[in-house]
Amino acid sequence: MEIVLFILFGLLAVAAALNLLFQRHPINSALSLVVVMMSLAVLYWSLGAEFLAAAQVIVYAGAIMVLFIFVVMLLNAGEEERTHGSKIAYIVGIPGAGAIFCLLSFAFLSERSQLGSTTLGGYLSSAVSNITEISHILFTSLLLPFEVTSLLILVAILGAVVLARKEL
């Protein structure tokens, strides 16, 4: 059951990501990204991380992508023109992407024992709630990174306000 969902939505995520690249209108690309986010949420869910799945849908698909589409609509961005692009991008781009893919898969495969593993749907029936576990980790062992991240976001917000204001 879970393996079928995993394969279906994994393929959907890849297809939507490719569609994102090939679509020429920014709105269509943004909508493809929404599909990618939602498929990722299903993948998280099928691994038993239901809180992460819900957060993915609410934060990424529901808030951030809406903001993207809002900006695209507000700026009235039209279809992008086909350009030939730079030669360097053609020469380096595809081998570079391939190299990054190989590097990442090598790192994940060689560190497999360190990263640990999970079975599909293995945590779905467990009695321990995701939220309890996540909040426990966030507020004990990962407290410093958590707070530093929130400070970083606060600084970014203040910076945006400063840039947006004409006079200060």
Binding site: A55, G62, V66, I69, M73
Partner: peptide
């Protein structure tokens, strides 16, 4: 077990209908 988040998530997706 995340019923409330499901409601919030589905509502936040619904805005695409109006936007699009």
């Amino acid at each position: 077990n995340i019923g409330l988040l499901v409601v919030l998530g589905v509502t936040s997706i619904g805005v695409y209908g109006i936007t699009l």
